[in-house]
C-alpha cells in the first residue's frame, strides 16, 4: 500500500453545480432563451401568479414551464390549462433543484424553440437560495399573509433575488402587513431589488410586473 498523502482541495461544495449552471447559462444564451428561477414558500400563490402572468404573455412569446414538486402534478395540471408547455420534475423528496436537473428538463422541453422558460422551484426559502441554476433572473414571491418580517428570517433568499413579487395584496386589510417595514427590511439586505406588489386575483399590479418582465426577456439574454 502506498503512503497516504494529504491533498489540499479547497473547493466549494457548490463548485460542481456552479459549473453546470454556467453551462446552462451559456446554452440558453446560444438559444436566445431567457430563464427565470421562481422561488417562494409553499402557499404563497406561486402557481396562481404564474398562470396570471402566462395569460398576459403567452400570445406574445413562446413560453415553457419547468414545474418542480416533491410528489404531485397538481400544479403542472393547473398550468397546462393555459396551453403553455409544461414539464413536471419529481425530484424524490429533495428540497431544491440543482443545475443538472434543470438541464435535463431544458432539453426535454426543447428550450431552443422557446423565448422564455420559468423554473418553478420547490416551495421553500432556504435551500434553493444556495443553488445557481443558470437563470437570467431570480424572482421570489412573498405573500401578504406570510408577514412583513420574512426578510429577517430568510436573509439569504432576499439577498439573492433580483425581483420580489408581493402577492395577495387584496388581503392586506385582513393581515397586519406593513409595506414600509417590508421594504425597509428588504432594502437593507438588497438595495437594488425590484419590488412589485400585486394580486393575481384582482389583477392589481399585474400589468406593471408583466411589462417589466417582457422587457427583461426582450433585452435580457444579451445583457
Amino acid at each position: 500500500m502506498d503512503a497516504l498523502r494529504v491533498i489540499e482541495v479547497k473547493k466549494s461544495v457548490y463548485a460542481n453545480n456552479d459549473l453546470e449552471a454556467q453551462e446552462n447559462r451559456d446554452m440558453l444564451k446560444e438559444q436566445d432563451t431567457y430563464m427565470m428561477n421562481l422561488m417562494s414558500s409553499p402557499g404563497s400563490g406561486k402557481t396562481t401568479m404564474l398562470v396570471s402572468t402566462l395569460e398576459r404573455l403567452k400570445e406574445k412569446i413562446g413560453i415553457g414551464i419547468i414545474e418542480a414538486d416533491i410528489d404531485s402534478d397538481v400544479d403542472a395540471l393547473t398550468i397546462q390549462t393555459t396551453g403553455v408547455d409544461v414539464i413536471q420534475i419529481h425530484n424524490g423528496g429533495m428540497c431544491h433543484l440543482d443545475a443538472a436537473m434543470v438541464r435535463q428538463s431544458l432539453d426535454d422541453i426543447g428550450s431552443s424553440k422557446l423565448d422564455f422558460v420559468v423554473v418553478e422551484n420547490i416551495g421553500n426559502l432556504i435551500c434553493p437560495a444556495s443553488y445557481d441554476l443558470g437563470q437570467n433572473l431570480n424572482c421570489m414571491i412573498l405573500s401578504v399573509p406570510e408577514g412583513d418580517d420574512k426578510p429577517l428570517k430568510y436573509p439569504k433568499m432576499f439577498k439573492k433575488v433580483d425581483v420580489l413579487l408581493v402577492s395577495k395584496i387584496d388581503t392586506t386589510s385582513v393581515f397586519d402587513f406593513d409595506f414600509n417595514a417590508l421594504e425597509k427590511n428588504v432594502r437593507k439586505l438588497n438595495p437594488d431589488i425590484k419590488i412589485f406588489p400585486l394580486s393575481a386575483k384582482t389583477g392589481e399590479g399585474m400589468e406593471a410586473w408583466t411589462e417589466y418582465l417582457l422587457k427583461k426577456i426582450e433585452n435580457g439574454v444579451h445583457t
Binding site: D2, V6, V9
Partner: peptide, 11 residues
C-alpha cells in the same frame, strides 16, 4: 458561511 471540501488523505 463557507462550505468547502478542505482536503483529502489519499493514495
Amino acid at each position: 458561511k463557507e462550505f468547502m471540501i478542505q482536503r483529502i488523505h489519499a493514495e
